[in-house]
């Protein structure tokens, strides 16, 4: 089944200058395709550049080089009107539900702002639309006139989702939407997001470090390490037939809530920490921690190549 490509990045790079220390490569040449209606999981540890990638996609950062195409058109060469449309079509929900809502605005103002900017609804209809959105995300009509501090973390995340949905986006970039929430609340928010996807056909780019959660909800998963995608495949394929040593180590590090399974499991412990993304060398970014690295790995950076249909990996040893 081939679905239409909605959002595409071509060799996308985003670096930050750190005074006196050099260049931090947050995103170093990423090629991604997001199809209409699919969920693409983007996983990696902290500092791997996944959030920067998400923010670059919603135009919060300007990439250094490379292109972002939305329906085949470069988003940085758009005119004003197209730009406005892009912001309507691609929305984002944020990790921290405490910091991402304006504490001085009541919920209906926060949700209604997008409607006003895009001139979608006015007057009575606008009011009705806001109440409808609140109900869609499992809140009450009475919540419309309350301030963010009156809500729990899970409820705030629902408000953030309602705000993003207000302008009927076609792509939702979800940046760790559940990692600040309690376990039982996480499941509620995930179920909500899955239901909304069925109802609206939105595509999700789901950024997270929680591999067991992302496995259950994604069609495809991309694994990021130090600014590069090291492996990308269908969700089941990635878990069953991953071939990049980093993916292998990452998967084996995740504890499974089952003592017997855990006692029998073989764990690949990575030595050391994730290296600093400042002034990266020329070799494979994972070479320093990789149990299988050889001279070639330290010398040249492997390209992402297709190892089987729809399954890509960037490793010299595969």
């Amino acid at each position: 089944m081939e679905r239409k490509v909605l959002l595409e990045t071509q060799d996308l790079r985003k670096t930050f200058e750190i005074r006196g220390r050099g260049t931090l490569t947050a995103v170093g040449g990423v090629n991604l395709k997001l199809h209409a209606g699919e969920t693409l999981g983007l996983v990696g540890e902290s500092g791997c550049g996944k959030t920067t990638l998400g923010r670059t996609l919603v135009k919060l950062y300007r990439p250094d080089s490379g292109r972002i195409l939305f329906e085949g058109k470069d988003i940085w060469t758009q005119n004003r009107k197209e730009n406005l449309h892009y912001h309507k079509d691609v929305q984002m929900i944020y990790q921290d539900p405490y910091a991402s809502l304006d504490p001085l605005s009541v919920v209906s103002t926060s949700i209604g702002e997008g409607l006003d900017i895009h001139g979608l609804y006015r007057g009575r209809e606008r009011r009705e639309r806001i109440l409808e959105l609140l109900q869609m995300v499992g809140l009450n009509r009475e919540h419309a006139n309350r301030f963010p501090h009156e809500f729990s973390g899970g409820q705030r995340q629902r408000i953030g989702i309602a705000r993003a949905l207000a302008v009927e986006p076609r792509v939702l970039v979800c940046d760790e939407p559940i990692s600040a929430l309690d376990v039982s609340i996480q499941a509620q928010i995930i179920n909500l997001l899955m239901r909304l996807q069925q109802e609206t056909g939105m595509a999700y780019l789901f950024i997270t470090h929680d591999l067991s959660m992302v496995k259950a909800i994604s069609d495809r998963i991309a694994v990021m390490y130090l600014g590069s995608i090291v492996e990308m495949a269908g969700a089941e394929t990635l878990y069953a037939r991953h071939c990049h040593p980093y993916t292998e180590a990452l998967l084996s590090a995740i504890p499974i809530p089952d003592p017997e399974v855990e006692a029998k499991r073989k764990r690949i412990l990575l030595r050391g920490d994730i290296p600093s993304p400042v002034n990266l060398g020329k070799g494979c970014p994972f070479a320093g921690r990789c149990p299988r690295a050889d001279a070639k790995c330290h010398d040249s950076c492997p390209e992402l190549r297709e190892v089987e249909k729809g399954h890509f990996a960037a490793c010299h040893r595969v």
Binding site: S184, Q186, S212, M213, K215, A216, I256, P257, D258
Partner: peptide
């Protein structure tokens, strides 16, 4: 409830989580 609401890496799961 607690045991069910945790996604497990080693289980095939439908897309609805119990909570």
């Amino acid at each position: 409830g607690l045991l069910q609401s945790v996604p497990r890496l080693d289980a095939r799961q439908d897309r609805v989580f119990r909570y």
